[in-house]
Design a protein around this nucleic acid. Structure first.
Lengths: 195, 195, 195, 195
DNA sequence: TATGAATGAGAATTCATTCAT
DNA sequence: TATGAATGAATTCTCATTCAT
């Protein structure tokens, strides 16, 4: 079920991927169900065979995205030990997710959040809990080691905001690549090692 | 012209303020011209005597907002000398703008950016130049003094993102007030003084 | 407000009358908002300037119809004294309402009742109370005089059913005119005078 | 063929019964083929192996219903001799049919009549002839004996209307049971015995 | 300037029906 | 016979915008 987004053979997967691309490009409101259907190669009415309504597509998309990114994050974290490196890994992972190197673009989660019904918002907020717990754990370790100047919860919020908002100015083929961007962002919050 | 937003007697000012509140609450797309007109106390058709179209309301709103916040920022900056304190003042100012303590909510600038036509986007981007220059100047001074761990341009982007995104989680009557939040955010990017 | 249905100059009145004719002819479901708009001479979208949705047209139609028929009934009742004659007058009145000699056809109330939302059903049921009270009062008088063989409440229900259902078989230009039909129906329930 | 409605093992029978319940509850238009299929436990596409289209389900349902009720009526009539008692038996039988004690609810015949194509309407009208002839015969006998105050054809129409309309107000577990209701209704039309 | 009725181009959604497997 | 994905036309409804008064 979780893998729909990556299943190239499922109709739902095709719809989710097409929708993701369009939502990212034009936003939820400006994307019509006809647009999505056309990209999938079916008629608009057929969408409703798979999803009860347009919003459900967005909701499921976000849901799968979070699960996907969380899984990737867990994997990346396993390969490093130092909390500082772990933070950089987390940031890098989140940036890669935003820029669709994982899934289809986590930025949708912020830019289109308002298009979700309150019910969907609540549901997805729940799913995010695990994901956020991972961040808090790393940030708390850094704080204990005196390597964080900011309160851990605030640090997480600031980092998320900074990362998500890169969407509005960052060009992947510009002066910094994603790894460098990640290093700069995580570095901003950590006390310099030789201090 | 610039003062329309604050002029309680002008029809345009009333419209701008009503629109600002609605755009912030429901977003541009989900706000109808009828909603705005109803809040002002006129009929929807009458809006078009003041603005050529709905988007023009948003565009002018953003324009006045930037000018307003920039003016406030300039005023605040005059009273402090240390670049570190200046950064905190800038952050505080931006946060106050987001939370409508200045103008009617700067967050609209980011959340509804996409709803603008490209022409409006370009125009407003131009106005933002002064505003951003002020940030860069302060951050560069800090960098020269070795008090900034992050590249100045990136620091500005990160701070803006973090500040804007507080909109999605920060509760003004919670654990931190705006001044504390500003201090934490600016502090995150600066090297501890006694280091 | 109540007179909308009869006001030839009001847009709402025009819509109500057009809708009434179409609902009667084709039923609520088979009548499209385009049909109604076309009959009024406007575009379908304009309907929603006057009514929030299609069902609201039906609801208001029924509402005004009941009020109209009740008013007519009151008027007719004033001119006769004998309860037997009053019953005949009531029946005649209801039949005239069904066949659009009063209002635009009360039969809609029965045939399209199901198309109403539960909220509308409840509302209209409330309005019917006065109307039904009038019937019960006359039937009770007849019962007291020993001129009714049926329990009054049941008699009312039977008469309503018989009257409404004439819609499915009665031809106004056939063997009986409405007055004769009314006499036969009211007569069915009353003990013959010389018995 | 006639027995499909009562055959628990035939697929068509299952469909007819499920459809009958739904049509009665929500009406023909508001019942989707998906609803019916779901109740039967198959998918909507499969319905069309049994019936050429949705309307054909309704048509066959009505057809079988009439045949079923007519058969029951014939049976009941055989056991009584007096035309007055026969009338009561007919009414009781029709009421039982409406309330699904025979078949699955005769009321559909009236409420959903309009949903039938004209061809189906004509066909079913034909089947109804026998059924109606039975009523006319009994009512004519009563008229000849001077026990009917109403013209026989009108009496039949009035009784049918009254009976069908009970659907909208009668509660089987209320003040009157079906037998009592039948007695009251037939009694309404007959001259009191000792008059 | 304000009104309010109308426009008209979409928008999402519904659903009976088809058909390859 | 059953499946289930797809069709495609129709339908209700939305809403920025226009314009005569």
């Amino acid at each position: 079920m979780t893998a729909l987004l990556n299943d190239p053979n499922s109709a739902k997967g095709n719809i989710l991927r097409a929708a993701a691309a369009l939502f990212r490009e034009k936003g939820f409101n400006r994307t019509t169900v006809r647009d999505i259907a056309a990209d999938v190669g079916i008629l608009s009415g057929s969408l409703f065979h798979h999803f009860p309504n347009k919003e459900a597509i967005l909701a499921q998309l976000m849901e799968e995205l979070i699960l996907l990114v969380d899984a990737e994050m867990q994997k990346q974290m396993a390969s490093v030990d130092d909390p500082g490196d772990q933070l950089t890994a987390l940031v890098h992972c989140e940036l890669r997710a935003i820029y669709a190197e994982i899934g289809t673009g986590l930025s949708i989660l912020v830019t289109e959040w308002r298009a979700l019904s309150e019910a969907s918002q609540a549901r997805i907020l729940g799913l995010r809990a695990d994901y956020e717990a991972r961040w808090l754990s790393v940030l708390s370790q850094l704080a204990e080691q005196g390597r964080l100047t900011t309160e851990p919860f605030l640090a997480r919020q600031f980092i998320r905001g900074a990362a998500m908002e890169t969407w509005h100015w960052y060009k992947p083929d510009g002066r910094w690549n994603l790894a460098e961007l990640a290093a700069q962002l995580s570095g901003s919050f950590m006390t310099p090692v030789n201090a």
